[in-house]
Design a protein around this nucleic acid. Structure first.
Length: 581
RNA sequence: GCGCCGGUGGUCUAGCGGUAGGACAAUGGCCUUCCAAGCCAUUAGCCCGGGUUCGACUCCCGGCCGGCGCACCA
């Protein structure tokens, strides 16, 4: 057997994906719509297994929780999260050359204005005219051209009429953030805790590209790790020896390149600042290797400062090399307190947890208890405001209450009242803790991109007995089919026996494919092509001696195994044991 | 969204102003005692709409889809 060549180009993979039912453009019978894909039987099984693997690694083993929230989300949520503004691009098309430009960027580049995004489309159009801004592509003056708003979120209406706008979520994260008060209660208000979600996200991309890489509807697996920024630390010792291929912002700005170092070293040297990000980079590296990503074609690239999202203070992307391009497959963002504090201020709920002090504190605090039966008749409708102002004054300047009279100012008017009517006193208060807004560390996986990477990186071509062969070296954990079962020939009772074995293995929980069509070599090749790790063949010896051959995909090596022992041996193989010594 | 190129059975592809040929795959049969073998047969195709023409898969226009480049990717 010749050495295998590893990796597939985009055309090879697209052809394989269509022909063998991994994925293909959706709705092709009606011409299709760009950016939507259907996962076929093999692809859906692979995706399911990939998600199960992610869940096992990032939810079960990390003792995090998983929820499932709606994809349709009311507008107010995205007003709070900043997506309504942050997602709204202003497009201006040049009438001469047809090039499209981000109108807000044009204004920023040509004027002193720095945050042009916050202006409306009309104002931007005015600014373009006022400053005589010209098309960067062809030099045509753009004054008078209209500026179109383009929102990357899919819009819909909730219920009849248009009074209740909603959007398809652009990330699953907001579905977690908005439920934080209940989730924190569920976690018994104990930080740190993590909440995951696997589900679809939607972005109305201007230009979907590259197969599954940039699509309009996609599966995300996101984990929101809520931590107390002052006191919580991850169990870093579990991953401190994991080697990370890091491409830092500093390295990108200088002459640097990818540096391989352990998690511990990355933290010691300050290459990765956040322990929590470093922790998840370590966990993720182990997971990527386990699902078949080629770690030699993989790196973590830190975002440059101007690249960061509106919510992130730091971000590392996991990137895979596909067809000589580095493609983002996961983002590890430090979202800080951004999201929770936004929802805290926009909604009526509190998005914080109570952190008790180790020891309760007693503080002396000046405060008032105004005699409202005096203030009411005296100040009429202003009585409430006067009381509020007294309370504020007590905190601001307690000495104002030293005399017999207190002066308060309200709307420019000066009022005086007897100090005794204010109920002023310095009271001692017991403080047992404080409310803190957790910080969020977010690993966010694009599952379609991960799946695509796994396919590209696991594709192999070699020769078996002089004949070319292609196969997918998928981990057993992910393979859509775990074992193929074939009769050597479909006669003399071999087919019947093979069918019995297939049924028994299915009952034992294996994903089994039975195939009696064509000669045996062709059937091996069929399973190779979709990554089935093992094939069982029933021959004449099976009838006489009760044994079958088990053939391993990558090496094509074969061993005879007793039929009775098949389930146990296959279970061991699935767990990572090797077939031949 | 703009520009360039493309769209023919399931997949890959040849070809022409008079409606199409191959390879592979698939299905049935024969053969075959472990790696895409052979033989016979079968199924199956010109992206959509409009125009030009006696006649359009072919030429023209528009759309849709795909690849690449530009822009975009919070």
């Amino acid at each position: 057997m010749a050495d295998a060549t590893a990796g597939a180009d985009a055309d090879t993979l697209a052809e394989l994906a269509k022909r063998r039912g991994f994925f293909f453009p959706a709705n092709e019978a009606y011409g299709g719509a760009s950016g939507f894909y259907t996962y076929g039987p093999e692809g859906a099984a692979l995706k399911r297994n990939l998600e199960a693997s992610w869940r096992e690694r990032f939810v079960t083993r990390e003792d995090n929780m998983e929820i499932s929230s709606p994809t349709v989300t009311p507008e107010s949520v995205f007003e709070a999260s900043g997506h309504l503004d942050g997602f709204d691009d202003m497009i201006l098309e040049c009438p001469e050359c047809g090039a499209n430009h981000r109108a807000d960027h044009l204004v920023e580049d040509n004027t002193e204005i720095e945050e042009a995004e916050s202006f409306g489309t009309d104002r931007i159009a005015e600014l373009v005219a006022e400053h005589g801004i010209a098309c960067p592509s062809c030099g045509t003056e753009l004054a008078g051209e209209s500026v179109e708003a383009f929102n990357l979120m899919f819009e819909t209406t909730i219920g009849p009429g248009s009074s209740s706008p909603g959007y398809l979520r652009p990330e699953t994260a907001q579905g977690i953030f908005v439920e934080f008060p209940r989730l924190a209660e569920y976690a018994r208000n104990q930080l740190p805790f993590g909440v995951a979600q696997i589900g679809h996200g939607y972005r109305n991309e201007i230009s979907p590209r590259r197969s599954l890489i940039r699509v309009r509807e996609f599966t995300m697996a996101e984990l929101e790790q809520f931590v107390d920024p002052e006191s919580d630390a991850p169990p870093i010792e579990r991953v401190e020896d994991v080697t990370l291929p890091l491409y830092s912002a500093v390295a990108q700005e200088g002459e640097g390149s990818i540096e391989r170092m352990s998690v511990a070293e990355a933290l010691d040297r300050g290459v990765v600042e956040s322990e929590w990000i470093a922790y998840y980079l370590g966990i993720a590296t182990e997971w990527y290797e386990a699902v078949g990503v080629d770690i030699e074609r993989f790196r973590y690239r830190q975002h440059l400062p101007d690249e960061l999202s509106h919510y992130a203070s730091d971000c590392w992307d996991a990137e895979a090399e596909l067809d000589d391009n580095w493609i983002e497959i996961t983002g590890f963002a430090d979202r800080g307190a951004y999201d929770l504090s936004k929802h805290d201020s926009h909604s009526d709920e509190a998005f914080s947890v109570f952190r008790p002090y180790d020891e309760t504190k007693t503080v002396e605090r000046p405060s008032v208890e105004p005699d409202m039966s005096y203030l009411g008749p005296e100040f009429g409708a202003d009585a409430g405001d006067v009381a509020d102002e007294l309370a504020a004054l007590a905190e601001r300047n307690p000495s104002a209450f030293d005399g017999d009279e207190v002066a308060v100012e309200l709307d420019g008017e000066q009022y005086e009242l007897p100090t005794e009517k204010t109920g002023f006193a310095v009271r001692s208060e017991t403080i047992t803790g404080e409310h803190v807004t957790p910080h969020v560390i977010e690993p966010s996986f694009g599952m379609g991109r991960v799946l695509y990477t796994v396919l590209v990186h696991s594709y192999r071509e070699d020769e078996v007995e002089g004949e070319p062969r292609s196969y997918l070296a998928l981990p057993s954990e992910l393979a859509p089919t775990f074992v193929g079962v074939f009769p050597l020939m479909d006669k003399d009772g071999l087919g019947e026996r093979a069918n019995e074995i297939a049924a028994d293995l299915r009952a034992a929980g294996f994903a089994v494919e039975y195939d009696d069509s064509g000669n045996i070599g062709r059937r091996y090749r069929r399973q190779d092509e979709v990554g089935t790790p093992y094939c069982v063949t029933v021959d004449y010896e099976s009838l006489d001696e009760g044994t079958v051959t088990v053939r391993e995909r990558d090496s094509t090596a074969q061993t005879r195994i007793a039929i009775d022992e098949l389930p146990a041996r296959l279970t061991a193989l699935r767990a990572g044991e090797s077939l031949v010594d």
